[in-house]
């Protein structure tokens, strides 16, 4: 049983990887969760998950140099599949294998979280949103982040991917009116407001997900509440696997 959820933002700097791992850890309390760094051109997740020295990454799998099991690490109650940082490896990797990798992982998990590229500018970047069952749109209360988040929502809808909800990150003060007004323009619910947090920055420096580094922080609580509203609906693994396998081959960016 699996549901694939893309975590996307359309622009960088919104805390998307922090969000992916926080939602993953919170959901892992009740579900079997696998997190994949689908941002293959801008590896980030490995540093957040303390995997900076990982010997084998998704890039090796995409180069057909390792099985996906070798790039899958049990960390913080989840399975984590990080990307490496070598641009050369990324460029040499066979992106078509990403679909196979995800299809393989889909058979062995409840919730598959895809940390998606912070852009809609290439086929590879859009593919996680295209292929996921639902998308979480990560926003900041800034005009560019909202504008790009609206674009992500439209892309998702255009490809038949439901918007699981919007999550406001890095909120300073009370953004209640902005959250309420933004909610009118997105199909899914508002999952929550996560306050701007020094704890999140410290967690990143420590190479730990926020929920491991500062589980009692206000931001961690807000992420757990958001995960509670996500309400995963695992479906048949064959459905996700088939969607990924049948998708066209993405171009390298």
């Amino acid at each position: 049983m699996v549901e694939a959820v893309a975590v996307a933002s359309g622009k960088g700097g919104t805390g998307k990887t922090t969000t992916t791992l926080a939602l993953g850890m919170a959901l892992a309390e009740e579900h079997d969760v696998t997190v994949v760094d689908a941002d293959t051109g801008m590896a980030n997740l490995l540093f957040h998950a303390g995997l900076g020295d990982a010997d084998t990454t998704l890039h090796d799998v995409l180069l057909d140099a390792a099985p996906v099991e070798a790039a899958t690490y049990d960390r913080f109650g989840m399975r984590v599949v990080p990307c490496g940082t070598s641009l050369a490896a990324f460029e040499a990797a066979d992106p078509d294998r990403l679909r196979e990798v995800v299809a393989t992982l889909a058979h062995d998990t409840d919730v598959l979280l895809l940390d998606s590229p912070a852009t809609l500018g290439s086929k590879s970047a859009v593919l996680p949103v295209v292929l996921a069952d639902r998308t979480v749109v990560v926003l900041e209360p800034t005009i560019p982040a909202l504008s790009d988040g609206l674009k992500v929502g439209e892309y998702a809808t255009a490809y038949g991917t439901d918007v699981a909800g919007v999550l406001f990150n890095k909120v300073r003060g009370d953004a209640g009116r902005v959250v309420e007004k933004a909610g009118r323009y997105f199909d899914g619910p508002t999952l929550g407001q996560v306050p701007s947090s020094e704890a999140a920055r410290a967690a990143r420096r420590a190479g730990e997900p926020l929920l491991a580094h500062a589980p009692d922080s206000e931001a961690a609580r807000a992420f757990r509440d958001a995960a509670g509203r996500l309400d995963p609906k695992p479906g048949a693994p064959e459905r996700v696997a088939d969607r990924f396998r049948s998708a066209v081959i993405p171009d390298p960016p």
Partner: peptide
Amino acid sequence: DDPDLGAVEAFLEDTDRIEQVRAEARAEA
């Protein structure tokens, strides 16, 4: 601790502008 969100609220209140952003995104997609 003023969140200073007036500009963001004004952006969200401009429904014509928002619809333009969304329509452009749909066409682009």
